[in-house]
Nucleic acid binder design. Structure first.
Lengths: 213, 213
DNA sequence: GTCTATATCAGGATAGAC
DNA sequence: GTCTATCCTGATATAGAC
C-alpha cells in the first residue's frame, strides 16, 4: 500500500470561504477549462455552469489564473482517477498481473474522455504552467514508476537486470500507445493490435525470450 | 527547401498570393502561436512581428483558425526538423546505430525549445484540431516507427521476435523520457541517468540478456 | 495588394445595492 | 457573501483610400 505524501498546494486552495459555492465554481470551471484550455475558457461560461454570479467567482479566486491553477492541481491530486490496482500478490504470475495493470491503463484511464482532455491540458500548458506539470508528475507518474520498479525488482519469480528501466519501458510504451491512439486520435495511422502489443511487450520486459508459451 | 509530397493541405495553403508577405506572416505567426497557443495568440502581435498590416493578414488568410492550421500543418510537414539520420549501414553494430539514433532524439530534437513548444501545441490542441495531430503522426511518428521496425527486422545481426513492438518500445520509452524531462520539465522528480537508461533499454530491445559486455 | 482607421463586440474584472 | 449592472481594455474582422 502506497501512501504518498503529496505536493498539492494550489495558490488559493487552503482558503475555504463557503465551500459550497467553491465546489460549484470548481465544477463549472472543470467543464470549461477542460474543454477549451486556459486561454480559451470564458469566465462567463464558468459562471453559467456553476450557477453563481461572476462577482462570486472573483470573491473566491483573485483571478482566472489562480482559479485554473487551483482546479488543475486539484485534479492532479485526485490520484484515484489514475491509480490502477496496485495490490500486488506475489503468488500471481507476473505476466498476469502486469497484463491486468496494462489493461487498467488502456481500458479505464485512456478511455475516459475527461482524463484524455486533462492530459492534453497538462501537456499543452506545461510551458506556461510548469508547476502544474510537475504536480502531475509528482502525484501520478512518479508513484506508478516507483510501484512498478519495486514490483519487478522484488517479485521472486522475476530476475530483471535493470528494474527501473524495465518499469520505464513498460509504462513508456503504454503511454506512447495511448498518446498516439487516444490523445492524438491517430490509431488508424499507426495501427497495431492491442493484445499483440501487450503480449510482446511483456515478453520483452520479463525477458523470457525462450519461453515456449 | 522543402518539397514534401505529404499530406499537407491546410485549408488555404494551396493559394499563393504574394508569397513574400505570406512568408513574413507565417514567420510572425510561428513565434506567437508557439508561444501562446491558439486561443492565447494575438493577431496584433503576429502583425507586429511580421511587419505587415492587419488587413494584409486577412487578405492572405480568411481567419485566425485557417492561419493557425496552415502554420502547424507546415511545421508538421517539415520532417527535417525531426528526422534523425536514417542511414542504416548493416555493417555497423545495431547497438551503436540505435544508440546514435537515440542520441539524436535526446540531444537534437528534445533540446530544441521550438520543437518542445511545437509538441505541446500539437498535443494540447489535439482535441480541437485533430487534423493537425493526425498530420503530425502521419509525417513524423509513422515514418520513425516504420523505419525502426524495418531496421530491427532486417538487420542480419538481429533476431527480434516482434520488430514492430520492439520499435514501439524503443521509441515509446524515449518519447516518455523526453515528455517527463523536457516537455513537463520534471526530470528532477523522476531522475534517471540518461546513459543507464539507454544502455539498459538497448539490452532489453536487442534481447541479449546474457551478454557479457 | 497594402495600408490607416474603425466597427463591433466580448472578455476579465469591479462598484455598489442588498 | 452574493447579486445586478457596468467599466474598459483589447480582440477579430472590415471599409475605404492609395
Amino acid at each position: 500500500m502506497w501512501r504518498n505524501r503529496v505536493i498539492c498546494k494550489a495558490k488559493g486552495a487552503e482558503r475555504e470561504l463557503s465551500s459550497e459555492k467553491t465546489e460549484a465554481i470548481l465544477n463549472g470551471a472543470m467543464q470549461e477549462f477542460l474543454e477549451h484550455g486556459y486561454a480559451g475558457a470564458r469566465i462567463d461560461k464558468i459562471v453559467a455552469a456553476a450557477g453563481v454570479s461572476k462577482a462570486t467567482v472573483y470573491r473566491h479566486f483573485p483571478d482566472k489564473e489562480t482559479l485554473f491553477t487551483a482546479l488543475i492541481q486539484q485534479i492532479a491530486c485526485r490520484k484515484e482517477l489514475f491509480e490502477l490496482q496496485q495490490l500486488q500478490s506475489f503468488e500471481e504470475e507476473p505476466t498476469t498481473f502486469l497484463k491486468r495493470y496494462a489493461d487498467g491503463m488502456l481500458d479505464n484511464v485512456a478511455s475516459d474522455p475527461q482524463i484524455l482532455t486533462f492530459l492534453r491540458i497538462i501537456i499543452g500548458e506545461s510551458g506556461r504552467f510548469p508547476e502544474l506539470a510537475r504536480a502531475f508528475v509528482q502525484n501520478i507518474e512518479k508513484p506508478s514508476l516507483d510501484f512498478l520498479t519495486h514490483y519487478v525488482e522484488s517479485h521472486p519469480k522475476l530476475q530483471i537486470p535493470a528494474p527501473e528501466v524495465a518499469a520505464r519501458a513498460f509504462i513508456g510504451t503504454l503511454i506512447h500507445f495511448v498518446l498516439l491512439r487516444d490523445v492524438l486520435q491517430s490509431g488508424d495511422i499507426v495501427p497495431i493490435e492491442r493484445d499483440r502489443l501487450l503480449d510482446s511487450l511483456l515478453a520483452l520486459i520479463i525477458h523470457k525470450n525462450d519461453e515456449g508459451k
